[in-house]
Design a protein around this nucleic acid. Structure first.
Lengths: 122, 122, 122, 122
DNA sequence: GTGGTCTAGACCACA
DNA sequence: GTGGTCTAGACCACA
């Protein structure tokens, strides 16, 4: 699993967390499935086990994975997570729309424009 | 001008840049108006002049202000800036919608939800 | 006997010890009754026999079970154990109350609140 | 500040987190006060800066402190925290009482006993 | 000077 | 083998 973009300015552990979160939300990683071991993933991405460890700890803290000591790290059930993530996305968009409104832009119009950009028809 | 939230995790210079950008886009700071001097703003916010300097440099880099040597820093014309910012916001929203789509959410529906959150009906 | 919650962060051997202790204190497992063999329990819980072995050793160390070589592991007399466990619980609660007091909370009031939570009126 | 008990089996970073939390709840560390720098605390306790860093990150995650980059780590306002901690304590006690009940003990009586142990009259 | 990230490598408990 | 903790030390952005 290749999870690091070395040109990306964000910390490596954050990139790993982010990418795996996406894979879980996209159902590429199924609930209950075992994630690569800390050491394996570190080697595959030529990074340090501590860095992967930090990413996995963050995933667990956010509820995307759970750890079984001596066994490995596993993907959590995603139904609840999807709902949570959906709410977060709505809030992030709302936050941008609030700023748009402040500057006098038409929020609804901005939404339509964004939808066009992703090729999503209304 | 009070521009810093010490609880905010983001770097201080970034907060200052952000707040002043908003004030310009909201026309609170008019085009051509002089910004407070680096020293004044630093004192008012009990922070380091270097930090304010960095914020001002960033504002200039992004086109929100321009420096007149020996005179001070001034707010740029906002018409073009508004247009630019509008495009950025659209792109940021589009980016969130792309992720939403990846996870199987209905982008248009998410938009409507976000619009409701800001009390903006279509 | 299903004794493991894989989502639980605690070590598996500890979970097994804990659950069996509870079953003994609740008199579900009667004094003198034979516990499942290490192998059986390991298979039933799809875990390693070494893990179950460690749990049984811990139970024995704490006086909840005793081993008869070549025969198996048996539940100890519970009267004494119950008394001991009662004392431990009192001490654990006292310890929490001490911390509460340190922070300036009213210990007695906290107790009443906890009693309400378990639906136990005085 | 001496925060580590080397005989304590718990991880060092956890001990540090725990002790500082207590100091905050006891108002020994006042809201807004600066905590010792990562390096200073590490030296004082002859441990590694990374370990202190982990403790501080945990304190921040739990809302007991906030970080100002380049400045230091500061104690958060404690009013809300105290309330939160009070609720946690009540729940921890309730949980012990539930177990007690399972084993047939009188929960209210156990509470009184615990109160006596801390010298707290009803 | 301050915290944040990362490496390289050790040692431990657990399964 | 698996994750968890820790050391010693580097380098970075930020103030």
């Amino acid at each position: 699993m290749n999870l690091i973009d070395w040109r990306d300015a964000r910390p490596i552990y954050e990139q790993i967390t982010e990418r795996i979160k996406r894979l879980i939300l996209m159902d590429v990683l199924a609930p209950g499935e075992q994630l690569p071991s800390v050491r394996t993933l570190a080697m595959e991405n030529s990074t340090n086990p501590n860095t992967v460890q930090k990413a996995y700890a963050e995933l667990e803290r956010q509820g995307y994975a759970y750890t079984v000591r001596g066994r490995g790290v596993f993907v959590a059930d995603s139904a609840v997570l999807k709902d949570k993530r959906r709410g977060e996305l709505a809030e992030e968009i709302a936050s941008l729309l609030r700023e748009a409104k402040e500057a006098g832009f038409d929020a609804a119009q901005l939404c339509e424009e964004a939808l066009k950009r992703i090729g999503g028809d209304i």
